[in-house]
């Protein structure tokens, strides 16, 4: 039986997010050849993105392009996407495990009375069943799960699926949809303060330069920021650094905080508490910089430098600059 899958496309700063193509790849991996994969794109002034999206292997794009969708509002988005879902009746729904995905997926799953698997990192098909791998205890263990029935909802962890490539087929058709909302709006978005504009999102970053208590102050993050910027990466932190008030909790990596899987993780002045290790052990290459040669972080690091981060980090920046120029 041919099935229909729907991905919810996400964008940021006027660009399609990488995780959208990764969610598409997840849908491709979960589907059979005769299944249909469609996308829904929601926002304001996003028509050019729909054109861009149409180059990917999709059957159809549902475009919700209205002023009211300029910023994410759980109510308007759930109502509008709920409307699309009623029309498309997907067997499976895919979205990134992002601020929006984490919020809207369970709401849509509840509407559909569907099961949901969050933060999926791999998909495999064995005989007739589809197995979804996901972390538990922030990656201290992993589980493979199946759904008992259709429809279902999956959120995809950024940086874990290869982004789908453009197809050589004719572009997907774009259907403009006008939202109809019967219920009066209860939630108003008053303001959005873009603190991360132009910056690389922590969960999507290929390189993360992360600071712990050893950074000593908010100013102490400056050399880390410089290195991260040079490498096109993001700055993260340990719980210790956040609790000490050196940085925003939004940067925290660990079992509380975010789980990240970049290609390069540079831990600066981080001792390596179990709760922190849970959040970054899935990184491809781990580099540890710490004054204490006995710090547990060295036990998981591929490369370690024993030394003061305030000396080592600027030296690294200097060396990377030589290579990149």
């Amino acid at each position: 039986m041919s099935r229909t899958f729907l991905i919810i496309a996400e964008h940021r700063d006027g660009k399609l997010r990488q995780v959208t193509m990764e969610a598409l790849q997840a849908a491709i991996e979960a589907s059979e050849h005769d299944d249909r994969i469609s996308a829904v794109l929601i926002g304001s002034g996003v028509e050019p993105l729909a054109d861009e999206l149409s180059a990917y292997p999709l059957s159809e794009i549902h475009l919700l392009d209205e002023d009211q969708f300029l910023t994410y509002n759980p109510e308007t988005y759930t109502a509008a996407l709920g409307g699309i879902i009623e029309t498309v009746r997907p067997d499976g729904l895919f979205i990134g495990h992002t601020a929006m995905g984490r919020d809207i997926a369970p709401a849509l799953a509840a509407k559909l009375q569907a099961g949901q698997l969050s933060d999926v990192i791999a998909i495999e098909k064995i005989d007739d069943s589809v197995l979804f791998t996901r972390p538990v205890y922030a990656g201290k263990a992993l589980e493979k799960k199946t759904f008992a029935q259709y429809p279902w909802v999956v959120t995809v962890r950024p940086n874990n699926f290869i982004a789908a490539s453009r197809s050589d087929h004719p572009p997907a058709s774009i259907t403009r949809v006008v939202s109809t909302s019967a219920t009066p709006l209860r939630t108003i978005v008053k303001d959005v303060v873009r603190k991360t504009s132009g910056k690389v999102d922590l969960t999507e970053a290929k390189v993360i330069v992360s600071g712990g208590r050893g950074v000593k102050s908010a100013d102490g993050f400056k050399p880390l920021e410089e290195l991260a910027e040079l490498l096109g990466g993001a700055v993260g932190a340990s719980r210790g650094a956040c609790d000490a008030g050196y940085c925003d909790y939004a940067l925290q990596i660990g079992q509380t905080g975010k789980v990240v899987t970049p290609e390069i993780y540079i831990a600066c002045g981080i001792s390596g508490a179990i709760q922190h290790l849970a959040g970054m052990s899935g990184s491809r290459v781990i580099i540890a910089i710490n004054k204490d040669p006995e710090a547990p972080i060295f036990k998981v690091a591929d490369y370690g430098i024993v030394g003061d981060l305030f000396e080592v980090v600027p030296l690294l920046t200097q060396e990377f600059r030589k290579v990149l120029n």
Binding site: L131, L142, T146, F298, V300, A301
Partner: peptide, 28 residues
């Protein structure tokens, strides 16, 4: 239940790598 667990396992253990030697500019 709408979902079922088929398998539960631990991630591969990360082995400790190498601690670089030499003075700091050399290590960098």
């Amino acid at each position: 239940a709408k979902t079922n667990r088929a398998e539960l396992f631990l991630p591969p253990v990360r082995a400790a790598g190498q601690i670089l030697q030499g003075d700091l500019p050399e290590q960098a």
